[in-house]
Design a protein around this nucleic acid. Sequence first.
DNA 1: ACCTGAACACCGTTCAAGT
DNA 2: ACCTGAACACCGTTCAAGT
Lengths: 229, 229
Amino acid sequence: MPAVSAEEGHTAGTGTGRRRAGRPSAAVLDKAGITTAALDLVSRKGYDGLTMAALAKQLEVAPSALYNHVASKRDVLLLVEDHLTSLVDVSAFGSKSWEDAVRTWAWSYRDVFAEHTPLIPVIAVLPVTDAPQTLAMYETVSKGFLDAGFPEERIVSAIVALESFIFGSAYDVTAPGDIFEPGSMADANPHFTAAVRSSAGPGRPADTAFGLGLEALISGLGALRGQAG
Amino acid sequence: MPAVSAEEGHTAGTGTGRRRAGRPSAAVLDKAGITTAALDLVSRKGYDGLTMAALAKQLEVAPSALYNHVASKRDVLLLVEDHLTSLVDVSAFGSKSWEDAVRTWAWSYRDVFAEHTPLIPVIAVLPVTDAPQTLAMYETVSKGFLDAGFPEERIVSAIVALESFIFGSAYDVTAPGDIFEPGSMADANPHFTAAVRSSAGPGRPADTAFGLGLEALISGLGALRGQAG
DNA sequence: ACCTGAACACCGTTCAAGT
DNA sequence: ACCTGAACACCGTTCAAGT
């Protein structure tokens, strides 16, 4: 795979005129360029702005040209997802304690995907075979669990449980601050209303809930270390 | 709000001919009928089949007629979501131990939304004010936590943490069975591959992971009971 | 093999006209 | 107030034609 950046792709037709029909002497598109352009588009316009037409425009090709490199829009989302996974911090596995490594990884993972929640429905059903960076992350995490004394046959379940919590929590970050404000329904729901009113603390509510759940998972799952399956 | 069922709505024009333009003597649509029709459509065709055009057809109206009752398709999804929440089993709060009540509620909640994962992105950002049944569920759960000695100011965070785990886990149920099969990448990722190969157990993998994470959360969060904030 | 350009079968939503 | 019908501004995707 040649290292063609979106920038190069963007300025491939260095001149002014448009490309005429027919196969160009050198391919103007490749997966790496499509990925970079998609990421750039998302950062500027959000996921609503990520359409095949807009992506093609950014790359200065016709929309149909994209289908020589990806089979569908979902394929584009998978390329983006796999790139983002490479940004997740797994460095603490192997250098810190298991608890600290899971903490660092989980917070980083949540932060990355909180900015990209529209990918979550895609990730959840994504076979890892199609996502090499994602697979690499699982490899590092699995080794960290194994080295910490985690029973091998429970590792996948533990990772899935943590990931489920992480993805669900990523949505919370995007929720409006007053999502739990009962408004006119307060009188009919007194216990919940009191709980909401008393729950104000320092920091973002999404961070408080994530920290609470993550520490519970770390201590609960951590208890499995050194046990047989 | 009159109790017009979708059935009645469906057969409102009992005769054969189509309705002519102009306001009908009695309204043929209302929110309850739209909700029932949407649920019926989803159960027959899935969420891909839930379009404003298909919904209108089911109700025997023009698509634009729907906009007299909902502001957007998102509004339709909120109506569906609030109905589904009323199906979640909260009955164990008040009759069983806190642990058993959370277990019953969480499994039921996950099972309901595993069949409706396209709603999850909508739910996560949904202000409770617009969803009375959802608010009623939170009221019951909050009272259960309070009665079990949970500190009031931690209740919302604990519920959010549990919900995040539940929503993330609902996606897992829909994932293909071989989602973690490393395929040709197995050799480059030996620890993860070994973990996947050894993880086969009885029951669905999604259920194993959900059970593992839920028990960790229950014991971790349960430790907060009787403490000050 | 890998582009362009035209076309297809949809979407959600708006709005004037009608009763 | 609440329906119809026509229109608008999009979507993702396919495919023949071109080099």
